[in-house]
Design a protein around this nucleic acid. Structure first.
Lengths: 158, 158
DNA sequence: GTAACGTGGATAAGTTCTATCCGCGATACT
DNA sequence: AGTATCGCGGATAGAACTTATCCACGTTAC
């Protein structure tokens, strides 16, 4: 089981956007995080399509959060970038083979699929309990409030 | 985020093994589930290496559970087949770029990684709460107790 | 001795992830 | 008007992983 690396990039970008005062361009976000500009652009477009960020085209354009940081959950970011499909996909093994279960029995989900789904619900619930604001507060607690001031200063520099 | 398809095969195999009276061969398990024999063999070897099943070589050989079904959890099977690595891998983005965090600050895990780890713990806890015996009981409840009798009969047939 | 079995390695095809480039339309400054 | 900067979507290519098969080997029962 593996999440795409873009998830990490996107989450960090959202934290940065939560601290910015205006739109932040892909170029700036990529430079700040030390990652590929062209590839990060793809992930930001996914956030945009998911409605988590708003984009401003043209010069001085860029991205900003569409909602307050306290209303953007980790789950939303993960699903925007990695997709919302469940990790386990039931291929209905029980309907194959010599002792295949009947169609009628299989209207109800197989027990394995149910257990897997329950685990994924627990995972999603946990992620839904963390917001971008929480993550930003964590950074402040860990490295001090001056960090985001320096970030804003760096973003303001041409 | 995606689990390999082998996970589904392996779980169903463990349920079958919990109902068998002796070793069940790869050939029989593959036939029963209607899946590729050679590929299923690989997954069964993973279960064997993880110590969840014991293998008997030679004619009349095959696999059997090493423990009572009530003591084999879904989590163990998933991790045996899919690996125990966490889905989210922190690449320490915060240590890159122009405002890179210092090494000292980074002895503590980044907040994003912590939140992701908590979610995966919730997922694992959920999976660890389901045993092969639970899954077998679910089958009995869903399709009736005769199902496993038919399975044992089929396994006994040459 | 022979047939059935698990094991590990080599191999190959298919799919997804990572990454880049291009042309397009939008915007701001000169 | 012209130009530089921006986001958007499509095409593309390489890397990594998943899926699948085959073979040589040692083991066991008849």
């Amino acid at each position: 089981m593996k999440l795409t690396e873009g998830v990490e990039w996107a989450v960090h970008c959202c934290v940065v956007l939560s601290q910015a005062e205006g739109p932040v361009s892909t170029t700036r976000l990529a430079e700040f995080h030390g990652v590929s500009r062209t590839y990060l652009a793809k992930h930001l477009q996914q956030l945009s399509r998911a409605g988590l960020v708003r984009s401003t085209p043209g010069r001085d354009g860029g991205y900003e959060l569409t909602r307050p940081a306290a209303e953007v959950t980790l789950l939303e970011i993960v699903q925007a970038v990695d997709g919302a499909e469940s990790a386990f996909r039931c291929t209905e093994i029980r309907q194959r083979g010599p002792l295949a279960a009947s169609k009628e029995v299989c209207r109800k989900a197989c027990g394995v699929a149910q257990a897997m789904a329950a685990a994924e619900r627990a995972w999603r619930t946990s992620l839904a309990g963390v917001t971008v604001a929480d993550l930003a507060a964590g950074v402040t607690a860990d490295v001090g409030p001056a960090t985001f001031d320096r970030l804003r200063g760096w973003l303001a520099d041409a």
